[in-house]
Computed example of a mutant assay.
Amino acid sequence: MQILMVNLERGWRGGERQTLLTATELQQRGYHVTVLARKGEALFKRAAEAGLRVKGVGGNGGLFFFLLCHRKAFDVVHVQTAGALTVVAAMKVWLQARLVYTRRTSFEVKEAKAARTLAKWKRVDKFVAISHAAAQAPISMGLEVSIIPSAVEFVPPDPDQIIAFSEEQHLAGKFVIATCAAFTAEKDPLTTIRAVHALWQQRQDFVFLHFGAGGSELAAAQQLIQELGLEQVYNIVGFRRDIENMYRLMHVFVLTSKQEALGSSILDAFLYEAAVVATRAGGIPELLDDGRGILCDVGDAEAIATACNQLLEDESLCREMVAKAEAWVVEQHAIPLMVDRYCDLYNHEHQS
Rank of each mutant, 00 (worst) to 15 (best):
R194I: 01
R194T: 02
A195K: 04
V196A: 07
H197E: 02
H197D: 01
H197M: 00
A198R: 12
A198P: 00
A198S: 09
L199M: 14
L199D: 00
W200L: 12
Q201M: 11
Q202W: 05
Q202V: 10
Q202N: 10
R203M: 07
R203P: 03
Q204D: 13
Q204F: 02
D205L: 05
F206G: 05
F206M: 07
V207Y: 01
V207G: 01
F208K: 05
F208D: 01
L209M: 08
H210M: 13
F211I: 02
F211R: 06
G212Y: 06
G212I: 11
G212W: 09
G214A: 14
G214W: 12
S216V: 15
S216W: 09
E217S: 11
L218T: 07
L218K: 14
L218C: 06
A219W: 10
A220N: 12
A221W: 04
A221L: 06
A221N: 06
Q222N: 14
Q222H: 11
Q223D: 13
I225E: 02
L228E: 07
L230H: 02
L230M: 02
E231T: 11
E231R: 12
E231M: 09
E231W: 03
Q232G: 13
Q232D: 15
Q232P: 00
Y234P: 01
N235K: 15
N235Y: 10
I236C: 12
I236Y: 12
I236S: 06
I236F: 12
V237E: 05
G238C: 09
G238V: 06
